[in-house]
């Protein structure tokens, strides 16, 4: 009897080890929460389609508060999200393609001048930018403006401008404001620039919605 119990406990521990290893694919997953599991399986179904092709894609994980740069299911880079807010997230149900990457000011080589041009680096990348997708999704990336009142004011100004535009649209058309999902992400300055560097035109994005309050 004791022998059987020992074998059973070994088998159970092996099963839990394999479960734990697989759980890492979706971090911070509550496996007894049906809503969390439903969302995780939805994301996994989409991710399998993306990972089957030779491409890099982005998974915005609102539950684990992280932006993951991935390829073939492997996490290449991890950018933590400090805070986020969203609207119409319930409509998110697919992969989104980035329409265009944030603008980069590139230096031009002048052969006549002969002077060496400074190459672009992470520091040249924008610290706040908006990403537009197909099907419609808007992601506003803002960097943490700690200790920089000017940046804080500019970011707030932009956020208010977007709201004002939405209200203006409603008043002008007399209808409902545009109901496509939008996401505001606040990350550190370095991570905002990293994301701006990494994204490319046509890059697929997935969003895992948070299921815990």
């Amino acid at each position: 009897m004791n022998f059987l119990r020992a074998i059973l406990s070994i088998l159970l521990s092996l099963a839990s080890v394999s479960w734990a290893a697989e759980q890492d694919v979706i971090p911070a997953l509550e496996t007894t929460n049906p809503a969390a599991l439903k969302e995780a399986t939805r994301v996994l179904e989409e991710e399998i389609k993306l990972a089957a092709r030779p491409q890099t894609y982005v998974l915005i994980d609102l539950e684990a508060k992280a932006i993951l740069i991935k390829s073939r299911g492997v996490e290449l880079h991890h950018l933590p999200i400090e805070s986020w807010s969203a609207s119409h997230l319930s409509q998110l149900a697919t992969a989104y393609r980035l329409r265009e990457r944030p603008p980069v000011s590139r230096r031009k080589i002048d052969p006549v001048d002969g002077a060496e041009q400074t190459p672009i680096s992470l520091a040249d990348m924008p610290t706040m930018f908006t990403l537009q997708f197909t099907p419609p999704l808007t992601i506003h990336v803002l960097s943490n403006a700690d200790g920089n009142p000017w940046q804080w004011a500019t970011q707030r100004g932009r956020a208010w401008w977007h709201r004002l535009k939405s209200w203006g649209f409603t008043l002008w058309t007399g209808g409902k404001p545009p109901s496509s999902p939008s996401l505001h992400l606040i990350v550190s300055l370095y991570h905002a620039q990293s994301l701006a560097w990494t994204v490319t035109e046509g890059m697929p994005f997935l969003v895992r919605r948070a299921t815990t309050p």
Binding site: E22, V25, L29, T31, L37, K38, A40, L44, E47, G73
Partner: peptide, 15 residues
């Protein structure tokens, strides 16, 4: 849901 999640995780791991 747990079984589905596990199956999908395995599929992704295989890629």
């Amino acid at each position: 849901l747990q079984v589905r999640y596990k199956t999908l995780t395995k599929q992704l791991t295989q890629l």
